[in-house]
């Protein structure tokens, strides 16, 4: 439906004159009451533009600065000017102000245009949809609907692009965080001594070490103690024998020889004890050692599941080595 007031506007007061490109040939009609210019209507001046109410018309020849229509008109003009100068945010604010002062679906159309320029497609679609809802019989409805569809396409594309950008940003942030973490780890590794991480003790190690130690102790006990005390016992024996067979050249008394004999027998007893104890300990150690070696051999031949892996730091990171 055409707004009659739109058609009645004069060329001097045709705020829509500056909007042909904006409105794509549409004319904007603003119904003004009296001698005062009509309240500026939205740049959209469709045939169904709603005229300002009668009671909103100020007294003729003296428009009130507080008149909402007047203020809407001023906001409309400012919005149009900003729009033409590609100041879309300011234009959007002006059109929103105008819409708040004067209810016209055309302002929603203009708001939609600003949102479109600002690539706020969802808001643009909302504004155009509000325009069609408020003006169901709009002549340009097919065009507007078509525009809405295009906006949806653009919206979706933009959403995808935004999503991809966000994903890319997240990936970039994650990469940066990982790089930072690696840098910190590298710095920490540079300060700390190399760490060797053994995945597990060598198989049979405890048995080998324990067995070797026991075998050694047993051997020392048996050989060292046995030989030392055996030598002592033998020396006593030789002393007593020499005294009895060579005429006691050392002039040993019976008591002294008895003492030598007692010492010799005591040393011999201790010797036997040490040798026996050393043998027991040594054999135990040998058995443990054999078990340990057998276990290690089995592991080396792959009969067992044991594998030895070593995790070593290197200049390029971490190197995993192992014996299987």
């Amino acid at each position: 439906m055409t707004n009659p007031s739109y058609d009645r506007r004069g060329p001097a007061f045709d705020p829509m004159a500056m909007l042909p490109r904006l409105l794509r040939g549409r004319t904007v009609g603003v119904a003004m009451a009296g001698a005062l210019v009509l309240a500026p209507l939205p740049v959209h001046a469709g045939p169904e533009a709603t005229p300002p109410p009668e009671d909103a018309t100020p007294p003729e020849g003296e428009p009130s600065p507080d008149d909402p229509v007047q203020r809407a008109m001023e906001a409309y003009r400012s919005g149009t000017d900003n729009y033409n100068n590609a100041r879309y945010e300011e234009a959007l604010a002006d059109f929103r102000e105008a819409a708040s002062l004067y209810a016209s679906p055309d302002f929603q159309y203009n708001i939609g245009l600003c949102y479109e320029k600002l690539e706020k497609y969802e808001e643009a679609i909302g504004a155009f949809t509000a325009y069609l809802r408020a003006k169901p019989s709009a002549e340009d409805r097919p065009n507007v609907e078509n525009r809405i569809e295009q906006l949806k396409v653009q919206r979706d594309r933009k959403q995808r692009e935004d999503e991809e950008a966000r994903e890319a940003e997240k990936a970039r942030a994650a990469e940066e965080a990982r790089a930072a973490e690696e840098a910190r780890a590298a710095a920490a590794r540079a300060k700390e001594p190399p760490v060797v991480i053994e995945t597990g003790p060598p198989p049979g190690r405890a048995l080998i070490l324990g067995g070797s130690a026991l075998a050694g102790v047993g051997g020392v006990l048996a050989l060292g103690g046995g030989i030392a005390l055996g030598v002592l016992a033998r020396q006593r024996s030789l002393d007593v024998e020499r005294a009895q067979t060579e005429g006691n050249p050392d002039e040993l008394s019976f008591a002294e020889l008895q003492q030598l004999e007692d010492e010799g027998k005591r040393f011999e007893g201790i010797q036997v004890g040490l040798v026996a104890a050393g043998a027991v300990v040594g054999v135990t150690g040998a058995v443990l050692l054999a078990l340990g070696l057998r276990k290690r051999s089995a592991a080396m031949n792959g009969d067992g599941s044991a594998a030895r892996a070593r995790l070593l730091p290197s200049a390029t990171g971490v190197v995993l080595t192992g014996r299987f």
């Binding site: 030989i227 055996g230 006593r236």
Partner: peptide, 11 residues
């Protein structure tokens, strides 16, 4: 150990 380091004398 077997024979050399023993006490064999008899007083």
């Amino acid at each position: 150990l077997l024979c050399g380091g023993c006490y064999t004398a008899e007083l």
